[in-house]
Each structure stands twice: as structure tokens, then as C-alpha cells.
Design a protein around this nucleic acid. Sequence first.
RNA 1: GCCGACGUAGCUCAAUCGGCAGAGCAGCUGUCUUGUAAACAGCAGGUCAGGGGUUCGAUUCCCCUCGUCGGCUCCA
Length: 651
Amino acid sequence: MSEIRITLDGTERAVAAGTTAGEALSADGRTVIAARVNGQARDLDHVLADGDVVEPIAIDSEEGRAILRHSTAHVLAQAVQDLFPEAKLGIGPPVENGFYYDFDVAEPFTPDDLKRIEKRMREIVKQGQRFRRRPVSDEEARRELAAEPYKLELISLKGGASEEESVEVGGAELTIYDNVDPASGEVRWKDLCRGPHVPSTRVIPAFKLMRSGGAYWRGSEKNPQLQRIYGTAWESKERQDEYLHMLEEAEKRDHRKLGAELDLFSFPPEIGGGLAVWHPKGGITRRVLEEYSRRRHEQAGYQFVVTPHISKSTLFEISGHLGWYAEGMYPPMEMEGATYYPKPMNCPFHIMIYKSRGRSYRELPLRMFELGTVYRFEKSGVLHGLTRARGFTQDDSHIFCTPEQLADELASLLQFVLDLLRDYGLTEFEAELSTRPEKFVGDPEEWEIATEALRHALEKSGLPYKVAEGEGAFYAPKIDVHIKDAIGRRWQLSTLQVDLQMPQRFDLEYQAADGTRRRPYMIHRALFGSVERFFAILLEHYAGALPPWLAPVQVVGIPIADEHVPHLERVVAKLREKGIRAEVDASADRMQKKIRNAQKQKVPYMLLAGDDDVSKNAVSFRYRTGEQKNGVPIDEAIAEIVNAVENRIQI
RNA sequence: GCCGACGUAGCUCAAUCGGCAGAGCAGCUGUCUUGUAAACAGCAGGUCAGGGGUUCGAUUCCCCUCGUCGGCUCCA
């Protein structure tokens, strides 16, 4: 057959037999770097067959970037083996914003090594080595890769039925990619790999090695630790610079740094890792943040409860936490023959409140809310400021409802969550529906009911969502709400879980209209997740410049000269009457210095006053943006500030 | 917990190839009295993270511990 028929751009076309995907697409190999053939990603030099459907993969698409990054990972591995011939290869997949490759080496890489490796990579990129795909049998692969023990392990794993697809050995046949010198045609390097790849290393427009660190082989701490090198690669220098700039910005916004600079909180070593103390300025913001949430909950029909920080082991035995998470709990305390544990969760305590007396269907849904501080023993290596702490406060609610109420309750709950998050200035949301994990308790049919109720709530909310198979908690499927912050980072925040286990374990009941005793459903719901973590996320989102209603100091009065202090004192007194956190900077510093100080503290309103203002009974605004507004009558100034605070407006 | 880097004044950072530890900011005391991001001068501030070792002598070299940071694993 000298002609075959293929589908291109949705229309059928005849091309010569032997035509490659790249030829059919007229791909330049720079903007279009690979092809999708019948839905499968392929190299551009993939030879087409009759009936193939061919689509281009652009370098600036998500899929294209992944291919680019994966190819860059190969260049990295080649460079490492050039410089460290004894290095054994692990795996080298693309990841979000970049790629990595794992190596078994005697000595961990130093920053200097990374520089040398990156330099070697640039040489390889410049050479324009071609990526050439070559199918091999298992035996051939084993023979060629005899010196690569980890690759051999991957080959032997390939047959495993439930083995997840990897970039090394995905699919039915094994392939090796050769890196070929374009001048001599010699094979410079090769790697076991599924592909596809960019046509040539020269196509890699921008890359950079980022850092190295230890990583367990195949992700298990039982396995040996390899050395992982992370890098990033982009379709253009500009996009890479943008990304690097975002990282710099993220570093500037680091809540641990801002926490110290703005005097909000600290982690004294004497107290212990992961245990924060809140300074006055952090404390006031936290109080306002909590108070607003509490008020909204009360308005939405929640009842405020309070429970203790420790409990006898009995409670956690019934709840099952001791069985499942004992190693993450602080160790027990023995007192008068009883064993007490610091609480890792609030739910069993709320159940005790439910059980304190008989319940009627008329009371349901019963919504309990608590800012409950819990303690979990996080391993020392994972602590990270307020976002991963050992003591933290959950804004925890538990809702007990009848099976008939479940779907509606979840839907309104999700709406409530989103509305409240918006009030804190977050605007972009995504959700994830996590289904039954491998390790679970209960009846799969009930899991199905609960999962469907959650799905219904998501559909009703119109929120975009993904399904995360097997990511649920051991006792419940859940919805996680993710937000995007001001520099595009995703954070998981709220969680909604339908729990069919706790009601059974604690034998919860209510009396139905027909007089029978029935089992309620229970919904776990945290909105911030942890108040500490939410605080950190807001701080990073706003880069420390909190909206006026949350700012620790909302107004600083700055006199031009000492004689203007009394005028500002009067303004500040009026502001305080309205509940505004205002002060006058009467220190010995000059006016310019006071502005600088207030600016560095990210105070939303600086009110200046000199002779002009005093004579007109006015003040002059300086906002932290640098803008100013002079000679504003005092009443107007106060009204402007009060309005921004009351309506939670960011300035 | 594991791998690695780092730890000098409240903060940011110097210096000492093994020989009495130095600056800016912040603080304190004065002087100056000012219109939108740093007035001037003086003073004070350190077990060089902690412990042990090598050495005539250790902040510097070696070991251990603690802490921080970056990864991995984990995250009810």
C-alpha cells in the first residue's frame, strides 16, 4: 500500500505510507514537539498507520511542557553520568513546574556539583542530540541495562498487574531512548523510557537546576535513599523568568518571615518545634478572624460548644483513633490508674455532647461548632511554620442529621463554606472529591451513598472539581476545597466528610417521627482546617498587607512636628470610639522615618497632620500603596476608614 | 524519622588560611523641630547554638547534641 488515510484537524486525508506524525503535522519540532496519535502521545518521527487520528502537541501546552521537562530530565541524567560515571539511575519524571531525576551516588551532590552538572547540560543541549526511540525485548533491555540495578527492578516490576504507569516502563512494550550525536551519529547515552521526547536537545529553550535532596527509592522509607536533583524547564526564557520571579515573590511572602518582621508570632525553641506563641499583633488579627467566623456560624444555625484538651483513652478506643493513628498522637499520661491522651481531633468530644441526652428528629440537623485546639505529633522533618504545626486550632463542626437531610445539608454547607472564604478575600476555588481508600472501615454500599451525596453537593454548587480515587479518610469520603492565592499557588483548605462510622461506633440515635430509633448521619466540616494554617495562607496571600479589618494596627497618626500630636490624638480617640485600632507615633523620629516605619509594618492608613491640616480640622492620608490624599476633613476621614473596616474592603 | 546545607549582637551580614570578634539597622542617652520610605552624635549590646576532643592557644579543625532551612516519607 503506497497511500494511507489519516485524520488531521478532524478531516480525513491521504498521505504516503511511511509518513511520520511530524511530517503529517508539518511540525517544526520547536513549537510543535510531539504528536497525539489515536490519543497516545508519540514522537514526531513516529510512523503513521492507516486510519490514525493525528493531533499536534505544542510545547506551550501542559502536555508539551511535560514532554519538554521529561526530555530535560534525560539531559540531566546524561550530564550526571558523564561527570559521575558510577552514578546509578533511578527515575526521572516531569512534575509540576519542572522535573527531577534520582541517582544512587556514594556522596550527595553539593551546590558546586549542581553548577558543574548544569554546565554539562548546556553543552549537551547545544550539541542538539537527537532522541531516538528503540523498542526492545525484556531480555535485550536487561542486557543493555545490566549496570543499572534500579532500571532492572523497574523492568521486572512491569508485569505486575496493578503497577501504576510510569514514564520508564508504561505500556505494553519496553523502549529505550538513545541520545544520538547529530554530527557523528554516535549514541552518546541511553535510558529506559516510555517517551515521547522532543526531537532534539536543542529544542529545550530554557532550564535550570533548582536543588537536590534525598528521596527514597520508589517512595518507601524502607528502601534506600537516593539523591534527587530537581530542575525546571520552560517553553521560553520569559516563562522561566516569570516562574523564577514567582518563587522569589513566594519567598518574600513566606509567613514565617513576615511573622517575625511584623511581630505576629514565634516558635520559641524552649517550647518546642511546631508550637507557636502569638504575639499581641498576631493575637489581635487572629481574634478578629475567629470572631467573624464565629458570628457567621451562629447566624447560620450553628451552636457553639467547648470541649477539653485531653481525654481518657476510652474515647479514642471507641472512635478508633488509637487503632489507626496512635503513632501520630502525643503519648499517654497515667493518672490515678487512668490513661489520658491529648486530643488529636474534636469529633469524639462533640459526639459526647450529642449523646448527653436523647435526641429527637425535631432537633436535627444539629450543628455544633468549636474552635478546638488539637495536638498531633508531626515528625520533626515535616514541621513548617504555622502551616504544619504540632498544636493547632481546628474550626471544627460536626453536623448530625437524618439520612433524608444529608444531601441538602451538604449542599448548603458547601455554599456556606465558599461564602465565608470569599469574605476573607479569597476568590478562586476548586474542589476534589476523595473516594474510598484501600484501608477503610465500614460497608462499601454506605460509602457509595455518602460519596454520591457529596457529588450531588458539588454539582449543585457549580464548583469545578476532580475526583481523587482512594484519597478519602479511613472512615469517610470527603470534599476538599482548594483556593488559589494571589500568586497562583493552590492551597487545600476546607474539608467536608460524610462519616458513617462514628455514629455506629458510638451507637448514636435519634427518635424519628414514627417513634422508632434511628441512626443519624454525621458530617465533619472544617472550613479553615486549622486557624493557624489559614492565618499563614492569608498572610502569604496578602504578602503581609492584610485588609484593614484584619490589620493589627489599622491607623497610625504621624505628626509633621511635635506640636501636631494633640490634633492627631483627638482624631485617634474618635477612631478608637468607633472600634478602630489606631495610634499616634509620638516618638522622637522624624516624619519621614515614621512613614517608613508604618510602611514597613504595612499599616493600611497613615494619617498625617501639619499646620495646614490642623487649621482646616483635617488630616492627610497616606496609603501603603504610596498614594496620598491631603486635607481630608476629620469626619470624612473617619467615615472612610470605618467603612473599609466594616465592609472588609481591601485597600 | 531519613538525606543534605546552615547556625557570629534583637535583625541583616562581615572577619579571623588556628593568635584579644566588626558594621549597618533596631535599642538606650542627648542634640535637632521637620509635609509623604532612614536627621546627627554618643553609649550599650556577643559563652561566635550547646557539649566534648585535638592544640601552647579553637568562633575557625574533628566528633556528638540541639535548632533552622531544603528535600523524602507522613498528614485522621
